[in-house]
Simulated assay, not measured.
Amino acid sequence: MGRFFKGVWILIFVGCIGVSGCAQQTSTKDETETKVVEPTEDKITKEEEEKEVQEPEVVEPIVVDILEPTTQEVVRSLTPIELGYGTEDAKYKAELEKWARELARGSETTPGLDSRMIPDKLGPDGQVIKGSPLIILEETELVDSIIKASEKGGTVELPLYVTASSYELNDAARLDEVVVGKYTTYFNAGVAGRTKNIELSAEAINNVILGVGDVFSFNTTVGPSDEAHGYQPAEEIVNKKLVMGIGGGICQTSSTLFNAIDVLGVGYVEKHHHSLSVGYVPKGRDATVSYGGKDFRFENTTGVPLLLKAIVSKGSLTVEVRTSKDYQAQIKKGI
C-alpha cells in the first residue's frame, strides 16, 4: 500500500514538470511572434523621408512692381523671366523700351505721362492764374531701374521729373512795366471768320508769363482751333494752296509773336515756314502752326521773366514782350 502511494506521487510530480515546461515554451513563442509583427521606428522614419523627397518646395517667380511716385499705386506688375530676362536679355530690354516709350508719349487711345508746360497767366486783377508744369518721364532711367530690379524683384518708381515755371509770384504784377519787344501785323477786318480766329488765338497768349528757362508751346497754350472752341472757317495755306479750313488765321498770331520775341534772341525749339509766302510778314519771317502737327516753340533764355501782351485793334494785331523795370537791364540777348 505504501508503494502504491509513492508511485502516485512520482507520477504527479513528473506531470507538473511537463506542464511547466510547455507553458514556458508557449510564452517564449508568443513573445517572438509579437516582436516580428511590430514595425520598428527606423522604418517609419525612412518612409517619411522618402515622402518628403517626393514633394519638392514650390518657388514663387520673381516679380517687379512699377509704382506711380505720388500715389504709390501699381502701374504695372511684370515677371521678368516670362519676358526673357536671363535667357533673351536683348529682347527683354527692347520690350521694356517699347513700353516706356508708350507710357511717356501715349498711344492713339491713351495719353502719355509726358506733358508740355501750360504757362501761368496774369489775371485782370493782377493775380496769377496757374497753368500746369512740364512733366517728363525719363525712359532710359526707367528701363535701367527695372532691369536692375529684375534679378531679385521688388518695386521701381516711375522717374517723373516735374518743372514749374521759374519766376517769383511777387514779381508777376510788375512784369508789364516796360516793353522790350514788339511787332504789329495787319489783316482785313471785314473777313469775319479770319478776324474771329485771330482774336481767339491772341486772347489765348495774352498775359502769358514766361519764367526763366520756360519753353513756350503755341499749340499747347492756344489749344485746339476747332469749332468746339469757337473757331470759324477761313482761308489757310495747305500744300502750297489756299483752302478753306476751320481756324484759318491763327498762323498770323504765331508769326506776329515770332517777330516780337525774336528781337530778344530766345532759343528756338521748333519753328516752321508756310509752303507759300504770306502777306502779313516779310518772306521767311513766318511761323506756321497746326494743332496736333507743326508747332512754334521757344525757350526763354533771356535770364529774366517775361510777359506776353496781344492787342487786337480794327485790322491789326500787336504782340508785345514786357518785363519789370528792375529786369530790363539784365536781359541777355542771344546771337
Score class of each variant (00 low, 15 high):
residue 1 M to G: 09
residue 3 R to W: 05
residue 6 K to W: 07
residue 7 G to T: 10
residue 9 W to E: 15
residue 12 I to L: 15
residue 30 D to K: 15
residue 31 E to A: 15
residue 31 E to Q: 15
residue 32 T to E: 11
residue 33 E to C: 01
residue 34 T to L: 05
residue 34 T to D: 04
residue 35 K to W: 08
residue 37 V to W: 05
residue 38 E to Y: 11
residue 39 P to A: 12
residue 43 K to S: 11
residue 46 K to Y: 05
residue 48 E to G: 06
residue 48 E to K: 11
residue 49 E to P: 00
residue 52 E to I: 10
residue 54 Q to V: 06
residue 55 E to D: 12
residue 58 V to N: 05
residue 59 V to N: 01
residue 65 D to Q: 09
residue 67 L to E: 07
residue 67 L to Y: 03
residue 71 T to R: 03
residue 76 R to F: 01
residue 76 R to S: 03
residue 78 L to M: 14
residue 79 T to V: 15
residue 81 I to D: 08
residue 84 G to F: 06
residue 85 Y to C: 05
residue 92 Y to C: 07
residue 94 A to W: 00
residue 99 W to Y: 15
residue 99 W to R: 05
residue 100 A to C: 08
residue 101 R to W: 10
residue 106 G to K: 10
residue 111 P to A: 08
residue 119 P to F: 11
residue 119 P to V: 08
residue 120 D to T: 04
residue 121 K to V: 06
residue 125 D to T: 00
residue 126 G to F: 14
residue 127 Q to W: 00
residue 128 V to L: 13
residue 128 V to Y: 01
residue 130 K to N: 03
residue 131 G to D: 10
residue 137 L to Y: 07
residue 140 T to N: 14
residue 140 T to R: 11
residue 142 L to I: 08
residue 142 L to D: 06
residue 143 V to D: 09
residue 145 S to A: 15
residue 147 I to V: 14
residue 147 I to D: 04
residue 149 A to H: 07
residue 151 E to N: 13
residue 156 V to A: 11
residue 157 E to L: 06
residue 158 L to W: 10
residue 159 P to Q: 09
residue 159 P to M: 04
residue 167 Y to L: 04
residue 177 E to R: 07
residue 180 V to K: 05
residue 183 Y to M: 00
residue 184 T to Y: 01
residue 184 T to G: 01
residue 184 T to M: 03
residue 184 T to C: 02
residue 187 F to R: 11
residue 188 N to L: 03
residue 190 G to F: 08
residue 190 G to Q: 06
residue 191 V to M: 04
residue 196 K to N: 12
residue 201 S to A: 15
residue 206 N to K: 02
residue 209 I to M: 04
residue 214 D to E: 12
residue 216 F to Q: 11
residue 216 F to S: 08
residue 219 N to H: 04
residue 221 T to M: 09
residue 222 V to H: 05
residue 222 V to Y: 09
residue 224 P to N: 06
residue 225 S to R: 13
residue 226 D to L: 09
residue 227 E to C: 02
residue 229 H to C: 03
residue 230 G to P: 11
residue 241 K to D: 00
residue 242 L to M: 07
residue 244 M to P: 00
residue 245 G to S: 08
residue 246 I to W: 04
residue 247 G to T: 12
residue 249 G to Y: 08
residue 252 Q to T: 02
residue 253 T to K: 03
residue 258 F to H: 03
residue 264 L to E: 02
residue 265 G to E: 12
residue 269 V to R: 12
residue 270 E to V: 12
residue 273 H to Y: 11
residue 277 S to V: 09
residue 277 S to N: 10
residue 277 S to L: 13
residue 278 V to E: 15
residue 279 G to A: 10
residue 280 Y to I: 08
residue 280 Y to A: 01
residue 282 P to K: 02
residue 282 P to N: 13
residue 287 A to D: 07
residue 288 T to D: 01
residue 294 K to N: 14
residue 295 D to H: 04
residue 299 E to R: 13
residue 308 L to Q: 07
residue 309 K to Y: 03
residue 311 I to T: 15
residue 316 S to W: 02
residue 316 S to Y: 12
residue 316 S to I: 04
residue 319 V to H: 06
residue 320 E to L: 14
residue 324 S to E: 01
residue 327 Y to R: 02
residue 332 K to W: 03
residue 333 K to M: 01
residue 335 I to C: 00
